[in-house]
Write a protein that binds this DNA or RNA. Structure first.
Lengths: 203, 203
DNA sequence: GTCTATATGTAGATAGAC
DNA sequence: GTCTATCTACATATAGAC
């Protein structure tokens, strides 16, 4: 409040615009001019707030990584049982990604481009991972599920949730879907994927 | 044979080099200079063989798309039963991608960048898709599997196969794997994924 | 804090010698 | 067919006025 300038407002508008453009085109293909246009300001102002393209990108990526991983780890740790944990995981992931369909591909793409540099951004939530492992081990000890490597299960869960978004253009073409049909498929998967997983691990 | 020039040889070397570079960095971030270096020739020669970057890229993408989709559709159509079809699909996909780990992400990435323009390149194999649908319907009619949308099953299969490659840097970091550990994970999945799928659809 | 104008670097593409 | 040298375009980044 000691700063009556528009600083915060503009910075957030820039970040939002950059998030839109970077997420859609990827860091390499994104243009600073396009970000400026999207934010309704001048190109030079981007450099005033974020010194260069790299820093602007990192501002965007940090938020994107949080958005994806908080959602992933969040509901895993809050669940009493494994099956409900899986159900809420899938539902939460779908709900989150349906409003941001490019997010999974964006993160995969940029992580691939610069694994070293971006690793720090996905370091949070590692404790939740441990809790998931315990959830699986307990379920197995109680005889509820077959013997399966928790990491393998987690990969399968992420795969089944994320892949339709990552391969969206391909799937839409292969199966002849339009945007609305794609949306319906996701809505349906919101229920079916969890049951698909549970069927294959139930003892 | 009527052409004793090195034409064909050079063109193939360029294509191979371009495939390496484009697949690793993506069309947007790839540099013609890097392709030239990789091929051990001059930049200008790229333009002699492939007029511009776009055409060179298309030459690469066509081959990559074939490599991925021939493998996908190929073993689906040759299988007598659904379960064996699934097993050979997973095995073939893993075998193919372990020697070309960037392929799935590359294709997803570029399809996302230019869906309209690249659609033609993934048009083959659509008849095999129909055969897969029939395979599923027959298995259901014989009471071998539960009632499941063939398209949904296909998406799940592709997801479970492709995603580890697409999210490789992320997975390696989350689970603390090095290249060798990643490779072992894939080898393991070559068997486990098929059983994972079959367990969840078996009646 | 925001703009216009400009500098700087680099990538794609061409011209022309060999 | 392959090279060196060069042109052109454009994207990032800076300088400086307001």
């Amino acid at each position: 409040m000691s700063r009556p300038e528009k600083e915060a407002g503009t910075e957030q508008r820039i970040l939002a615009a950059a998030r839109t453009v970077f997420t859609r085109k990827g860091m390499a293909a994104a243009r600073m001019q396009e970000v400026a246009d999207e934010a309704g300001i001048n190109k030079a102002l981007l450099h005033y707030y974020f010194r260069d393209k790299q820093r602007l990108f990192e501002g965007v990526f940090e938020g994107s990584a949080h958005k994806q991983f908080d959602c992933i780890w969040g509901c895993l740790k809050e669940s009493p049982g494994l099956f409900d944990g899986i159900r809420s995981f899938v539902a939460a992931y779908m709900d989150r990604m349906i409003e941001d369909p490019m997010l999974p591909l964006f993160i995969a793409q940029e992580m691939n481009r610069d694994p070293e540099g971006l690793r720090p951004f996905i370091d949070r939530g590692m404790k939740s991972r441990q809790r998931f492992v315990k959830l699986v081990e307990d379920a197995h000890a109680r005889g509820e599920i077959i013997d399966i490597d928790p990491r393998e299960l987690l990969v399968n869960m992420m795969a089944l949730c994320a892949h339709p978004f990552i391969a969206r253009p391909m799937l839409m073409h292969i199966h002849g879907m339009n945007d609305e049909a794609f949306r319906r498929m996701i809505i349906k998967r919101r229920e079916s994927v969890a049951e698909f997983i549970i069927r294959s691990i139930r003892a």
